[in-house]
Amino acid sequence: MNILVGIFVLNLQPIEKKSKMKILVCISKSPDTTSKIAFTDNNTKFDENGVQYIVNPYDEWYALVRALELKETIGGNVTIVTVGNAADEAIIRKALAIGADEAVRIDADPTDAYYTAMQIADYAKSNGFDLVLTGKETINYNGSQVGGMIAEAMDLPFVSLATKLDAAGTTLTLEREIVGGVQVVEVQTPAVISCAKGMAEQRIPNMRGIMAARTKPLQVIAPVAVETLTTYTTYTMPNAKSACKLIDPSNMDELVELLHNEAKVI
């Protein structure tokens, strides 16, 4: 059933060419930044008890908002995709409320970055997107992996950690972080971009957006068969810090002495 839907979409490749951008934004859920991090099942599973999930900030603040801005200036369509379970539809509705046009949920557990990226690449390949955007990384696993993996699976150029993105016709102009500096680059669409701070400003959904999100199309598709390449075996918490040593503000020589002789860091 769901797979049939996928095939219909495949036949609906855009006929009129360019200027209007067809953008896919990959979103992931992450625990609210104030969540208490704990583990269960002998430290093998993240304890979801009482955890509130949000759209991963990089995906929402930068990738999604920049996609919407591009659509507003040059026209087009913004689809969001997530690999997740029915429970994740709450974050999908949030992204729709901010302004995405439609959503796709690939109905599976995002077990590792490779599995997740292969699912998204498979969907994206058959849907003719000009631009695939991801956040720089998730704030729970911090892998910075999914964007590059999608690019390789689709054989597309990849610009990582972009802090600015502009589009004119099929040319994208980007600013990105490089080791010890920044660089301006150009690349042709279709391309995959991972988005970092600077690209856009967070948008708070308004009431109209929230209402509209309820009726926007949300397509659920079945995953393709893909193996995983990695697995988390156990989790641990950092050791608690011993008590802080207070130093008199007028005695900075003492601090320097301690940093040198006791902490041995200078």
Partner: peptide
């Protein structure tokens, strides 16, 4: 993992 709030072991 969790942006430095915890550690994970990956196999």
């Amino acid at each position: 993992v969790f942006s430095g709030k915890a550690f994970g072991s990956v196999k």
